[in-house]
Design a protein around this nucleic acid. Structure first.
Lengths: 245, 245
DNA sequence: CCAAAAGTGTTCATTCTACACCCATGG
DNA sequence: CCATGGGTGTAGAATGAACACTTTTGG
């Protein structure tokens, strides 16, 4: 091998991976409202099968190397688009994993992001032999330390759901309170009181009625709501300079 | 230059930096209890002056490159010991900063940690022309994006102080409730009701009386407490596998 | 009219907050 | 005995959980 290859092998490789969450019903069908229906929605994530050593054949998080001229988040978005065609509604850095022995080949540090996609966006994932949705709670043994990473991402999703306003990243622009509550129930895996949930949401100032209602159900038509944007969605502190929506 | 140097320049450099917090009184003296005295303690952090380009002369966070055979946290601890002689009581990953233009020289990604040190440990910092304590709220213009990083670390410290039990990392093994309250007041920058603070701490199960008291004050001798360890200090979820003290 | 989900009202328990008050020590 | 901070008690506000009850639609 050439000199440059040896030098590269002697440097630390920098990669990004992303844990992508979407809500789908128990059978794995994202068509339809996905929440608010009879079947309780659950958290799913897409994985890709490794087609080269090391760990060839194992399922893994989508990701790849960071290019010299792209930011970390940019690299995450590019890899996401390339391997899954997904453009997440929410994307946040999770953690940098860099244990010496986490990759058997060369030394690799992975900046891991986590993402939320809307149901309609989740449809764009081109399924195949090497790309597949998995329920977040019953994953196979993944490549490298990816099981640990998914556990951590799930924990972050659940804790952040309790004090932040990220739930809308699972929904479209307009939604009913039942749909929003369905998101919370699916992620937190526990039923919520509809009456109290309504009051908490309304008093938070995070949502406002659009004026529209949903007709067609065999019951009282629910109002539609949208997010006001008044409430800061996340808590990244001095980071995320107000934009990023 | 040789071929290997060009290749290295064409790869992404991986560094670690650490934001180190300690409590010192307004004049910057860490001798004595540092909290619980008359002068209200404030948050300080040590910076090192850059002695080479780029940004030569500017104050910056202590840090350095990650070696091939050390973990990210290990690299943070080593750089801390080498540049400041400090061994923090608490050390946690903060964020990975990797914007393309954050370093004018080569492409550099920094995994940033934040740390808390005890007052006696803070004494070990060997001050000099190029190593100095600064009050966290009135920093000069730092090198690179380090002002943003410190702001973020300060925000994390303050938010985490409200729901976690990290305050003891600023104190010794034994402490009075007034000292512990002093830590909270210094970090959160607001006075706390002694009576309510006592009840909250006692009911949390995080502390227990040692049986000892502090005599010598011109008032009723306060009891000494220690942390029980029953309460998980931090909230890193699936990470931090129970050990790490 | 009936079933079902939307939406409102009310009660009770828990927690937070403010502040009055007593205790123990040094001077 | 007095000043000072340590420590306890308690009333009112605020929040949250539980659940009864009314409203509006399709069938």
């Amino acid at each position: 091998m050439s000199d440059s290859s040896d030098v590269l092998r002697a440097s630390i490789g920098l990669a990004v991976s992303t844990v992508i969450f979407a809500l789908r019903d128990a059978e794995g069908d994202t068509s339809g409202p996905a929440v608010g229906t009879d079947a309780p929605a659950t958290v799913w994530l897409p994985l890709v099968r490794r087609i080269r050593e090391p760990q060839c054949g194992r399922w893994a998080l989508p990701g790849g190397m960071v290019e010299l001229d792209e930011s970390l988040e940019g690299a995450a978005r590019r890899n996401l688009a390339e391997t899954t065609q997904l453009e997440p509604a929410y994307l946040e850095q999770l953690y940098a994993f860099g244990d010496v022995d986490r990759s058997p080949d060369r030394r690799l540090v992975s900046i891991v992001y986590w993402a939320l996609v809307r149901p309609d966006e989740a449809e764009r994932l081109t399924l195949g032999e090497n790309v597949q949705w998995f329920p977040a709670d019953e994953l196979p043994e993944l490549a490298f330390d990816h099981n640990l990473i998914v556990d951590y991402a799930l924990w972050r999703l659940r804790t952040k759901m309790e004090y932040s306003a990220i739930a809308h990243a699972f929904l479209g622009d307009e939604f009913t309170l039942a749909e929003l509550r369905g998101v919370y129930e699916a992620v937190l895996q526990k039923p919520l009181d509809p009456a109290n949930f309504r009051r908490q949401m309304e008093s938070s100032g995070a949502i406002e009625p659009t004026g529209g209602v949903v007709t067609g159900g065999r019951h009282r038509p629910p109002k539609l709501y949208r997010y006001t944007g008044d409430v800061q969605l996340v808590d990244a502190g001095p980071l995320t300079p107000r934009i990023s929506a």
